[in-house]
């Protein structure tokens, strides 16, 4: 038996928002530690990795590991039936082929139950080693969102350059060129507004803005985002979900022909 209850439907809605443009179907892997999901987009260029540890739930029970194969669009439709303040419980039998969503209103006067059929999904799981990166940039999530949106009006590719001076995002296209530079401002009082750059050596990498724009759908989940970069390796874009998990996106770099 798997059963997990979270106090606010809003959180699960935000998680789905952050996943649905990248992934059609995905296995939600539930263990006694929590829920995780790893899925690549259909072109195998990017990957989303979600972790929601059990301590982020009001109630969590997972008798044995279970993978819930879920069509993200169907789950999104069901979650739209919940109010943001509703409590949500997910429930699945060990050998069952459905997952049940229960929404309870804050005043407990309304209870809705939706049953969704599970899918059999062949998951393509990638082994991604945890590693130190050459450069990391922590910045307000809304700032990163704005930069990706603004540079998309200029070109399809962004060059991210990290130097001692700061981090520079550059896009160029038929109509011209755009450059946005952020400087280290780790002295700003409010942590969520800080730009914190760590760097072992200068580097410059190019990425497709189309995917970065998908990643910024997670902006509502966290105040800050961290970009981790190493030459010739995929970019890691991480949004922390409070203190109980994260959503990480990986994007292979573009390499000059």
């Amino acid at each position: 038996m798997f059963e997990a209850r979270m106090a606010q439907a809003a959180l699960l809605k935000k998680v789905l928002e952050a996943v649905k443009d990248l992934v059609t179907d995905a296995n939600w892997d539930c263990t006694s530690a929590g829920i995780s999901l790893q899925a690549m987009d259909s072109s195998h260029v990017s990957l989303v990795s979600l972790l929601m540890r059990k301590d982020g739930f009001d109630m969590y029970r997972c008798d044995r590991p279970i993978s819930l194969g879920i069509n993200i669009a169907s789950m999104t439709k069901i979650m739209k039936c919940a109010n943001n303040n509703d409590a949500v419980t997910l429930r699945a039998e060990d050998e069952g082929d459905t997952v049940v969503f229960t929404f309870e209103s804050a005043d407990q006067e309304k209870v809705s139950e939706f049953e969704m059929k599970l899918m059999d999904i062949d998951s393509e799981h990638l082994g991604i080693p945890e590693r130190e990166h050459t450069a990391t940039v922590k910045m307000p999530a809304s700032e990163f969102h704005g930069i990706c949106r603004d540079l998309s009006t200029i070109g399809e590719t962004v060059q991210v350059s990290v130097t001692k001076e700061g981090v520079q995002f550059t896009a160029s296209g038929d109509t011209g060129k755009g450059t946005i530079t952020l400087r280290n401002n780790s002295s700003v009082d409010e942590e969520s507004q800080q730009v914190v750059i760590t760097m072992q050596e200068e580097l410059s990498l190019s990425f497709a803005l189309r995917y970065l724009n998908f990643f910024t759908k997670a902006t509502a989940l966290a105040d800050s985002v961290t970009l981790s970069m190493t030459a010739d390796l995929p970019l890691v874009v991480e949004y922390r979900i409070e203190d109980t998990g994260y959503i990480r996106y990986f994007l292979a770099p573009k390499i000059d022909d």
Partner: peptide
Amino acid sequence: TPIQNELLEYYALV
């Protein structure tokens, strides 16, 4: 134009 690499060039399927 830069070539878009795939993740499979960096990470193995497990």
